[in-house]
Amino acid sequence: MEAKNINQLVTENLSYVKSLANRFKGKGVDFDDLVSEGYMAMTQAAQKYDTERGTQFIAYAAPFIRKAMEQAIKQQSASYGMPKDGHQQLNKKQSRPLSIDAPLGTNNKYTLLDILINKDALSEEENTYFRLISEDLKAAIETLDEREREVIRKFYGIGCPHIPMADIAEDMELKRERVRQIRDKAVRKMARQAKTKALKTLLRK
């Protein structure tokens, strides 16, 4: 399936991801993290989706999305060895992560996902705009230390397939919460280094 069709499927069904994330609120994982996990899972489902099977896309994608969220909650609970609802106060203190579906600026309809997978669907003027932001994003990532770069690239699927936070934690032999802290610190650092207003706005949401 072409990138523009994948983006359309994901965008049209984002409300389902957010509604499901709402059901899991208070289970130990920040709402925005749940949305990010679900969003990435839905993108992966869209890449595998076969329109000729006659199955509605969201019916096909729902198990992928739910599994990703449940895995994130399970990993978070295991990291602390406490009940799933025991993280509510902790979550209130956590900074919001970079949102891959957040608009790039107040008056912009495009998102970070457009930069990453949908360049071919854009006009020449839009491509120039996104190229500047993409270059700014890459430059900001290069200001991070090696561990921060690894977390950012893997979690947001920049230059590689998206990897759930639980799997990143396992690969790096760290607790999931530690990976979250590294990610949030890296996002704040990138926001300070960003040159374009659009990227600064996105990173500071």
Rank of each mutant, 00 (worst) to 15 (best):
M1D: 05
E2S: 15
E2N: 14
K4L: 04
N5Y: 12
N7V: 02
K18L: 03
A21M: 02
R23K: 06
K27A: 00
G28Q: 00
V29F: 01
D30W: 01
D33W: 00
D33Q: 02
V35H: 02
G38M: 08
M42T: 07
Q44G: 06
E52G: 03
R53L: 11
R53F: 09
A59C: 03
Y60H: 07
A61W: 10
A61L: 11
F64N: 15
R66P: 03
A68Y: 09
M69D: 08
M69I: 05
M69K: 08
M69Y: 08
E70P: 14
A72W: 10
K74S: 14
Q75N: 11
A78G: 09
G81R: 06
G81S: 09
Q88M: 10
L90S: 09
L90Q: 10
K93F: 07
P97W: 06
P97V: 03
S99P: 00
I100A: 11
L104Q: 01
T106G: 01
N108C: 11
N108I: 06
Y110G: 01
L113H: 03
I115W: 05
N118H: 10
N118P: 05
K119A: 15
L122F: 07
E126L: 10
Y129A: 04
R131K: 14
I133V: 15
A140G: 02
I141M: 07
E142N: 14
E146L: 07
E148Q: 15
E148F: 06
E148G: 08
I152H: 04
F155D: 05
I158T: 08
P161Q: 09
I168K: 04
A169V: 15
D171V: 12
L174F: 09
R176S: 11
D184P: 01
V187E: 05
A191T: 04
R192N: 12
A198F: 06
T201H: 14
